[in-house]
Design a protein around this nucleic acid. Sequence first.
DNA 1: GAATTTTGCTAAAACGCTTGAACAGTCTGA
DNA 2: TCAGACTGTTCAAGCGTTTTAGCAAAATTC
Lengths: 359, 359
Amino acid sequence: MISQEKNSGIAAAPIDHARAGRAHPVTLREVAELAGVSTATVSLVINKKKNARIADETRQRVTEAIAQLGYRPNAMAQTLVSGTSKFIGLVADGVATTPFAGQIIHGAQDEAWKHGYALLIANTEGNKDLERDAIAMMLEYKVRGILYSTWFHRPTDIPETLREADFVLVNCFSPDAGTARAVVPDEAQGGQSATEILLRGGHRRIAFINTTTPAPAKDGRLQGYKDALEAAGISFDPDLVLEAYPDQEGGYGATEDLLKLGVSAVYCYNDRMAMGLYDGLRENGLSIPEDIAVVGFDNQEVIAAHLRPPLSTVSLPHYELGAAGVRMLLGIDAAPLESAVKIACPAVERDSVAAPSPA
Amino acid sequence: MISQEKNSGIAAAPIDHARAGRAHPVTLREVAELAGVSTATVSLVINKKKNARIADETRQRVTEAIAQLGYRPNAMAQTLVSGTSKFIGLVADGVATTPFAGQIIHGAQDEAWKHGYALLIANTEGNKDLERDAIAMMLEYKVRGILYSTWFHRPTDIPETLREADFVLVNCFSPDAGTARAVVPDEAQGGQSATEILLRGGHRRIAFINTTTPAPAKDGRLQGYKDALEAAGISFDPDLVLEAYPDQEGGYGATEDLLKLGVSAVYCYNDRMAMGLYDGLRENGLSIPEDIAVVGFDNQEVIAAHLRPPLSTVSLPHYELGAAGVRMLLGIDAAPLESAVKIACPAVERDSVAAPSPA
DNA sequence: GAATTTTGCTAAAACGCTTGAACAGTCTGA
DNA sequence: TCAGACTGTTCAAGCGTTTTAGCAAAATTC
């Protein structure tokens, strides 16, 4: 990442770098020759070593030579010398499967970049062989560390080879605690926030349509619901908790049962469910939020922001997970081995819950 | 501090590779010493050189030493020698912005992997400085080539430095033709396919709600619509073409105007629009596909597959774009400089268009 | 049994960079 | 005026591979 200095003093020095298809990349040696110094000097100038004593005039000459030749350091050679590269590996089990993975990548990439690291990503789509190969590849490229991520929050096994590297689990955790650093979303807090949106809207009798699929999210989001109710002095009523498959069809299908509950508000396990529920409610002539208030979970952009009315929900902090993973890896954030670090799921309020009546 | 060395030869060699946190990675030299040969020999057996003559017994010994030590080649050293790495760079202007980018990554990654390459990705979110740095980084790491991709199909400028590498434009193209290889979706064919779904459903009077935003997609999808009509012997009626902002709100807002047209079917510029239109239509008491058939474009999973009824649409081939980009870069697929290669947008039929009445 | 070929393996030179040690000069202080 | 300190620069070793040329020993030929 040569800084591409000014073309100092002497005007009109025809910078001819960026010559496409150059047969042979410019090396340190060539720069040194042009500048009439040794390669050591050039290296010193480039790396701005603090205790390197270089005459301004020399520094100048070197800088010019670099610009003129369009020199770029060979990162491979640098890495060879230093032992580790400026790479952070990210192995993901589903880049394609979900819009969420992109956010993890994005967060990791931004944070990594900030510290001078580049992201080397590998998508395994759950294939264990691919995964092993991917990790091997990263190890061979001497990555600084590896982020091992899953597209939904879940426990995971840690591949043997992963332990050869410095690593952090992102959006997943090891079932046997104390053995790996990890960062996950705070499902319980999220569930609580979601419920609180409804509580703030003045609702007291609130249903929760949970998922049928076992997952940390299932337990956490339910726990959050209970916590919020308790904090509001409302006793938990198990009859108000329904279960459905966590997608549009599931939400739609739950409509009938929900209506029997006589609630004024419902908190859905996720946005997709809420989307289905919207249809179900509408078919029953009910309007949101007047007749019934709805909140989701995930803040899945394409859906939540554009339903009618736009859906109040709670955001899964994928970007933050990626970023925090990198920070933990680099030792910038604390990363206890004992338990996963939890990242907050912030509430995103839109129009599916009415403001409390001023009464 | 290398883990306990050989207990050579003798059976029961406990393979102790994968020793986490090994102080110093195992090198070729160490393997060579354990096996009692030169590093050259080890290199030769590892790379299975065809005209290398190695005794079976030696090969055996080396192989064992490798396994015993858990040796991994240092890719940096290999790259240094060979001049180029096994990396393909992917610079994207929006990994986060859209669920689509993930598919490009996925396709590129799968194809790259297939040829022994790893993906080095950089997300620039449109930031030109970041972009320059990202490309510089890739150049420094001696990538085999760079895929420059955009999250929606559009013309793009080619950053100066990009030309220092072998590159292919993905989902975008250079306004001045003949200067860069590129691969883009075939919008016109897609538009035609979308319209044909409706035509096959027996519809003759078909509206098209185009986008208000200028883009290759706008022109292409309209062209496809015209082509399909013409092929069906239906003359194009400009009055049947509406325009709206390409999201849910736009689609919803277009309902009223659409209804005035007296059409039996409508083709929307994209799925999000169709989603909004669904709401508008429903509010007018119309049902899909009985009263009006709808097709979208993009095949945006979360939406299209889960609307009620599920939306017939046309798929944007992001995965294929990524994969084709890699193949073009590696010279596996032909890649004319003159014009962008177009990838088909396959129709995905669901239930928003009824089968033609058997009459 | 010498001449020739084949086989099995190694020495050593790269690849492009970093870095600690070393070395001339030049200053400084007493 | 000279020891010592400082300044500016270079030497050269080393990072972990690959690869070519070459060498000794074994096998083959006649």
